[in-house]
Amino acid sequence: MMVKKKRPQILLNGIGIVYSLLCIIPFVIVVSASLSRPIDLSQAGYKLIPSPLSLNAYETVFRNPAVIGRSYAVTIFVTVVTVFFGLLFMSMAAYTLSRRNCAFRGALSFYFFFTMLFSGGIVPSYIWITQYLKLQDTYRVMIIPSLINVFYVFMIRTFFQQLPSDIFESAKIDGASEAVIFFRIALPLSKPVLATVAFFTAMGKWNDWTTGLYYLNDARLYPLQYLLYSIQRNIQALLAAMDFTTSGMGAIPIEDVPGENLLMAMAVIATGPMLVVFPLFQKHFVSGLTVGAIKG
């Protein structure tokens, strides 16, 4: 009896372990490539363990850390500002949508919901943002157009609706205004859903590279992911920006000029920290997910 029951468990665990390994191995390869010499990568290929080990790529990056540092600063700034204002504006709207005593609730719901059904598409947005609002090459273009995610608005609204209504009623009787109720009561009670939305907003911003693709020309404004995208297209720009100039008079040995190993090192530096930080929040957002039904 016991034996019979154990076998499926072993099988399940086996699948779980294999799948987990498959999730990790590509990272190991990339880390290994970042620790290799470019010449070995093109001759011997990628390996699980680098041989010979070379810190050439990291030395190049940290000899002039300004490029990646600036990109980190831009990304952090944009992420923090977007999360703060996005959360504020989305929850304010969500509160209005959740209150039955709001006279224009139905219309407003429709107004929000319709944007999920239909959009003008990328071309009109692009022309509007670049030619009329002139937002290209600014920090604003990375923040303002994506502040409101209607999906999250409805997620927060649903959470507000599920809060016990007597709290609101007693606050009303005490003479509290709607704004006060929102800031003093509704917001503090909604930490789980706010944490979830904050997490997803932050992740979305951190991983955003298409904004750069469409709206950024100025290399000083490149966020991390767009930087990664652009160096994959042309690593020469990065080498030059890192002062890897060839203006000295002697020839530089081929092994010392970074190539694909530098690309991989940049990928490691750009993602590594997040892979440590994001899982810490995981506990919070798994519980947040369950509140996310968005039936309108």
């Binding site: 989305m90 304010m92 709207a93 709001c102 407003l108 502040l147 409101i148 704004a179 929102f182």
Partner: peptide, 15 residues
């Protein structure tokens, strides 16, 4: 309702 309008305004305007 004025409060509601005020609360919903930033998001609505952005949309």
């Amino acid at each position: 309702n004025i409060h509601f309008a005020f609360l919903a305004l930033p998001a609505a305007a952005l949309l």
